[in-house]
Simulated assay, not measured.
Amino acid sequence: MFTKLLITNQRPRLSFRPFFAALVVFANSFYLSAQVAAPSKSSFEARLLNIEAPSNEPFRYSTTLTNASSQTLIYNLDAQLPQGWQISYRVDGSLVTSIQMQPGKTQEIGIEISCPITAKPDKYKIPLKATSPIDNFQLELEAVVKGSYALEMTTPTGRLSDEVVSGSNKEIVLQLKNTGTLPLNTLELGSQLPTRWEATFTPATIKQLEAGKSVDVKVNLKVPDKTIAGDYAAKFDVKSANSTTDLSFRIIVKTSLLSGWIGLLVIFAAIGLIYYLIRKYGRR
């Protein structure tokens, strides 16, 4: 009886280990969520600082701007570009030059830089700035310009039409210009003309055209006899291993003065014949 009484009066011991374990897990999760929700330091960073592209294609960078302060800030975006270069900033698809950021916010900014097609192959440094009343971030991008091929065809005067008399020849001068940064080799000229028309090029092939240079090509256009007067379309093209281009040219065909006089004589002869027939047979 005494032994049972002792066992009944014993108090159970309380264990605080599960409580402390739960408290530690809650504190860790709270700390991690706080780390994700609120960045600890403001910054302006780029995923890639160095991008390589030809001069006729844009350089595209992806940057991240972070406002870790406790106040709303307006950041102005600016860049120092070489002469003739252009830059644009996009946020969520819209073009911007500044961005308002709430406290603890991080924003992706897409940057697109374009250089002149005549830019020489080289490495160019592009300093960027994102400034606010309390921050002054600087980021230096690098654009590596590769050589590019580009060809343009026009005329020395810019005129893209001319007149020619039916059954005669006409000389047209075309101008080829290498607007890229690399030389073009073995340029061959050709044409697409109305039926029975002919075109002869002088020269017909250009061995090499240096970057930024131009050359004139003479086209001897032969229009067949008895071609009906009117407007005709001719297309001239030039091809190389790296670049091609073409040019549409309007040809206005006119009849010769002799043909006009012959036509008038035929008309007058017909009128005279009708008059003679009326005088001779009209009274019967």
Rank of each mutant, 00 (worst) to 15 (best):
M1E: 13
M1N: 11
Q10H: 09
A22I: 02
V24S: 14
S29V: 13
S42Q: 06
S55L: 06
F59K: 04
R60M: 02
R60E: 01
T64P: 03
N67W: 08
S69I: 00
S69K: 07
N76E: 04
G84A: 01
W85T: 00
L95R: 13
M101R: 08
T106H: 05
E108C: 04
I109T: 02
I111E: 01
C115E: 01
K120L: 13
P121H: 06
K123I: 11
K125I: 12
K125N: 06
A130T: 00
F137E: 04
V144H: 09
K146C: 04
G147V: 05
S148D: 10
S148M: 03
A150I: 00
L151R: 11
T157P: 03
S161P: 02
V165I: 15
S166R: 08
G167S: 15
K170R: 14
I172H: 10
K177W: 01
T181A: 13
L182D: 05
R196G: 00
P203T: 08
K207C: 02
A211C: 01
S214N: 04
V223L: 00
A233D: 08
A233F: 03
T245E: 15
S248E: 15
R250F: 07
V253N: 07
L258E: 15
L258C: 11
S259I: 12
S259T: 14
G260K: 11
G263K: 04
L265I: 11
L265V: 12
F268I: 07
I274G: 11
Y275Q: 05
K280P: 01
R284W: 03
